[in-house]
Design a protein around this nucleic acid. Structure first.
Lengths: 170, 170
DNA sequence: AATTTTGTTCAAATTGATTTGAACAATCGG
DNA sequence: CCGATTGTTCAAATCAATTTGAACAAAATT
């Protein structure tokens, strides 16, 4: 049962609240649900790792939300399990935030962006095929130009990701 | 009353449908509503500019949606009003897509990203102020480190945007 | 083996964002 | 001036995504 500073205070203090708000806002821009921002935000500003129960208690969210939120954050590589420190026979797992921007960006790109680019590529190939079957030459030319452009955008998107990562990796 | 190819066919043909689907998908990643993708998608694959009524008719969306969607797209610089071509006394306005990636990305950054970065900067300054008032030196140091990091992320974000634009500008 | 603790799953409820459609304004043509 | 056309606005309805919470599983403790 960890030394536990004062795990019993429920509500966030003003500073914590404000940090959480920043992350809630941040993740919305990325199209992720609010609970993700809350969980990551609280972990980010907490001095010690927190358990699922801590999150439920302090953020007033359900166990379900916390569990699902942690799962997503783990898949993004944005939180990691703080391994049970000393030899204590501790069953509960505690979580820490990953705080290197590189890691966060990398995880996001891998999980949320790449898959869309992949499936986009496929769809565009289908489009190319369809355009080939258009009768009217003028129209076909026009459509071809547009679809090519679309393909070009995708490729640009793909090329930019590694550059992004390199720059944010410092 | 524009030569009008055959403005009367309601439903999208398979190719149009598929292009629209690609854009609907695309804009979701950007956190924009589906109607935005539909409208832009149809404009993108149409040989001639379309009016609001055309969009309502072909996409089966309400006038309200079309109007609001066009407003957003215009604010992003993603569609432009096709000026009334020949001297015809045409009241209705027709819309064309902007198809240069540079323009699209620029508009999106300006309208959807920058404002968040701005307000984020403000919030972080408030955080810095609050952290200064924390009593315990150890804790203050920790919080300070985290908040600084947050500020650093923001600045990285800000720096990356022009680079993005430059690269996507060709 | 029964009980407690920790965590996951998923159908249903909730919430928040989008879409609708009716009312309205503005402009044109007769 | 009057009716028709084009487009906007916004409250209410709809819809999709998130969150909840009850049921369950697994592991530990008694």
């Amino acid at each position: 049962m960890q030394p536990a500073s004062d795990r019993s205070s429920h509500d966030l203090d003003p500073l914590e609240r404000q940090v959480v708000a920043v992350f809630v806002d941040g993740v919305r821009v990325l199209g992720l649900p609010r609970s993700i921002g809350e969980i990551y935000g609280l972990l980010f500003i907490s001095r010690s790792p927190l358990s699922l129960d801590d999150l439920v208690l302090r953020l007033n969210i359900s166990k379900g939300s916390a569990s699902q939120g942690l799962r997503l954050l783990k898949s993004l590589g944005a939180v990691i399990e703080a391994n049970g420190s000393s030899g204590g026979t501790e069953r509960r797992t505690y979580y820490e935030p990953a705080v290197e921007l590189k890691r966060l960006v990398g995880g996001f790109i891998r999980e949320q962006i790449r898959p869309h680019l992949e499936s986009g590529k496929t769809k565009i190939n289908q489009l190319v095929a369809r355009v080939r079957e258009v009768e009217d030459a003028e129209t076909r030319k026009f459509l071809s130009e547009r679809v090519d452009r679309l393909g070009h955008w995708m490729r640009s998107g793909g090329k930019i990701l590694p550059i992004l990562q390199k720059i944010l990796g410092q």
